[in-house]
């Protein structure tokens, strides 16, 4: 007997977002036949990249369990954008080889700090990452008080094509490549073991603390890549977008059905969730809907996504409450 569709959605929670994005893609093409023209692909991917990368950045922490909801990745991506435009490029760090590693290092450091706070210092992840988000927002407002446009720099080629390949496709593929590389190591297994049941993983000799710190660090690295993608797209500093990207990260995560319970899911959900957001955004623009509606649409998508995700058993409340309150099993 073939499994029912509800069971399939339960096992692959991103299928809902997948179906939704397919439908949206068709509507987009109907509304604007030029939408799928090959010439438009680099631009589409460049618009999708910051959304998708912010969403992907929230995934490793979520997989590591313990309610690892990382609220700081959106602000962190914007911080990388603001630092690149305001500090790095004007101060001589304008080549790829000097600024990109520096941004990645900053992202990794902030991610590792999140991991340190939630594991070694045993803060509840939501509270710890919210504090880090506050601090980052302050930095963004301080450094990027005035939005300025970036002078000519290496990121602009990422919004177009590098040879035959759209630049954004490279950025979008980076997390997947890193994830696949990790699959070949013991870390991948340790991460899913930790997320599935940290006590069991700990008893079997997995270094749970290190595993979780690395998970948050990976998120920070992906967020830095998202910041680069954002800079490539807009070629200016966007400090005012900080809260918007918190919304994006959470919405894509919820739509993609990434489990906050930990130990399940992968990067697919985040990509598909972000694709839904991107397609809604383009549809709203194509149909000439007033831009004020975008907030309403995003809010509805967030609530809808989390409810559907919950039906699929992915996004459960018990996953993010402190253990004390739920340790009845």
């Amino acid at each position: 007997m073939r499994p029912s569709w509800t069971r399939r959605v339960r096992e692959q929670p991103w299928l809902f977002a997948g179906a939704l994005s397919l439908a949206l893609l068709i509507v987009n093409i109907v509304a604007d036949p030029n939408f799928a023209a090959p010439d438009n692909w680099p631009q589409h991917l460049a618009t999708l990249a910051p959304l998708a990368l912010v969403a992907v950045a929230t995934t490793p922490a979520a997989v590591s369990g313990n309610g690892g909801l990382d609220l700081s990745v959106g602000p962190l991506a914007v911080m990388c954008n603001v630092l690149l435009v305001h500090e790095l490029i004007p101060n001589g760090f304008d080549s790829f080889w000097t600024s990109a590693p520096l941004l990645i290092a900053i992202g990794a450091a902030v991610g590792a700090l999140n991991g340190f706070l939630t594991t070694v210092l045993r803060y509840v992840p939501v509270i710890a990452t919210l504090c880090v988000a506050f601090v980052i927002m302050g930095v963004n407002e301080k450094v990027g008080a005035q939005s300025i446009s970036a002078p000519d720099n290496w990121t602009s080629s990422l919004a177009e094509s590098i040879g035959p390949v759209p630049g954004a496709a490279i950025l979008l593929a980076l997390p997947i490549l890193l994830w696949l590389a990790l699959r070949a190591t013991a870390y991948h297994g340790n991460l899913y073991a930790t997320g599935g049941n940290d006590v069991t993983a700990f008893s079997s000799g997995v270094n749970v603390t290190a595993t979780r710190i690395v998970a948050f660090t990976l998120g920070g690295i992906f967020a830095a890549v998202a910041g680069i993608a954002l800079t490539a797209l807009v070629q200016s500093s966007q400090a005012s977008q900080t809260t918007f990207y918190i919304l994006v990260g959470l919405t894509a995560l919820a739509l993609g059905g990434t489990s906050l319970g930990g130990g399940r899911g992968g990067l697919t959900g985040a990509y598909v969730g972000a694709a839904v957001l991107f397609l809604i955004q383009t549809l709203v623009t194509t149909l000439g809907v007033r831009p004020e509606w975008i907030n309403v649409v995003y809010g509805v998508m967030l609530v809808l996504g989390v409810v559907v995700g919950a039906r699929a058993g992915a996004f459960s409340l018990s996953a993010i409450l402190p253990r004390k309150a739920t340790s009845t099993a």
Binding site: I246, N295, Y298
Partner: peptide
């Protein structure tokens, strides 16, 4: 109601509803 009925994190639902309220005002 949504939080309790579907057992979903309030942080996500309230962010969504808050965004709707914010958007509704501007619309």
């Amino acid at each position: 109601w949504v939080c309790d009925r579907f057992e979903v994190p309030s942080i996500v639902v309230s962010l969504g509803v808050g965004t709707i309220a914010l958007g509704a005002g501007t619309v």
